[in-house]
């Protein structure tokens, strides 16, 4: 993959980096199949160039933008822990830029309160979207509150380990919201819409009692079918210990204020 120019991460690493191999061969990307190894096996044929993203809804400058026009010249590295709702985690060196720089460019209107995202639908290149038996309703959709979207930790990633994002990780452009369960960080984005009302979110629609709109990492609120108190660290081998899950995935100092006064067991 093509190398990217970026400013190296200056912050504190949340843990030991997972290998490129771990990060690119253990993926949930149901558009390519339900197995963790399906995306790596089957995403190679996805055409990511040309790519454009439609930005619409409550913005002053709506439009369909080519990827080259969206991605700024200065990229930066962000090393975040990714905590999956399935109770595993890995540490990933993303390359990308803050979502708020993009949103500011298209000028959200005063009435905008949420940001909705949508993944590509292209069954001929995404085998998980083909066939009689579909795992989810496509397109995959997700959403954030505008203040969450504007938070400096929230990025759009187009790279990984200094290179362009591999297809199985959500090329060419994906969201990364490090204090939320991984499924909120929607992949292969084709549309960003600013809305007044809370937008639909795929897993929330699928099982609302299991996956809330917020889906902040929270060791105290169990998934109805499994505990979220601890997590398996991917890449540790057969005898690796579990890790205690941290509130907001370790980013509580930065983001807890966004949820002041909210009952997080109700708004899970």
């Amino acid at each position: 993959a093509a190398k990217l120019d970026y400013r190296p991460f200056a912050g504190e690493r949340p843990g030991e980096l997972n290998s490129f191999e771990d990060i690119t061969s253990y993926n949930n990307f149901y558009e390519f199949g339900l197995g963790k190894d399906d995306p790596k096996r089957l995403a190679g044929g996805l055409t990511t160039s040309p790519w454009s993203v439609t930005i619409d809804g409550l913005v002053a400058k709506p439009g369909t933008y080519a990827l080259e026009d969206l991605v700024p010249a200065t990229l930066e590295e962000r090393i975040y822990r990714l905590r999956c709702v399935e109770a595993w985690s890995m540490v990933v060196p993303w390359i990308g830029f803050e979502l708020r720089t993009l949103l500011n460019r298209v000028e959200p209107l005063g009435s905008a309160k949420y940001v909705a995202f949508e993944t590509l639908v292209r069954p001929e290149e995404m085998p998980g979207q083909k066939g009689l038996f579909q795992s989810l309703d496509w397109p995959y959709v997700e959403g954030l509150r505008l203040d969450e979207a504007m938070h400096p930790l929230t990025i759009l990633a187009n790279g990984l380990y200094g290179e362009e994002l591999p297809n199985q990780n959500g090329a060419p452009l994906r969201l990364v919201v490090p204090w939320k369960y991984g499924f909120k960080s929607i992949k292969s984005i084709v549309r960003i819409t600013l809305t007044e009302d809370e937008p639909p979110a795929t897993w929330n629609l699928q099982a609302p009692n299991e996956y809330g709109f917020y889906s902040n990492v929270n060791p105290e609120v169990s998934h109805p079918r499994w505990s979220q108190a601890t997590e398996r660290v991917v890449g540790g081998g057969l005898f690796a210990a579990r890790r205690d899950t941290e509130m907001f995935n370790g980013y509580a100092d930065e983001v807890a204020g966004l949820y002041a006064g909210m009952d997080l067991s109700k708004f899970y």
Binding site: S19, E21, S25, Y26, W88, R232, G235, L238
Partner: peptide, 15 residues
């Protein structure tokens, strides 16, 4: 396979 890396990055769940 689990002991030699053949079950992928998360061998416990796979096993």
């Amino acid at each position: 396979l689990g002991l030699t890396g053949g079950l992928g990055p998360e061998p416990v769940k796979a096993l």
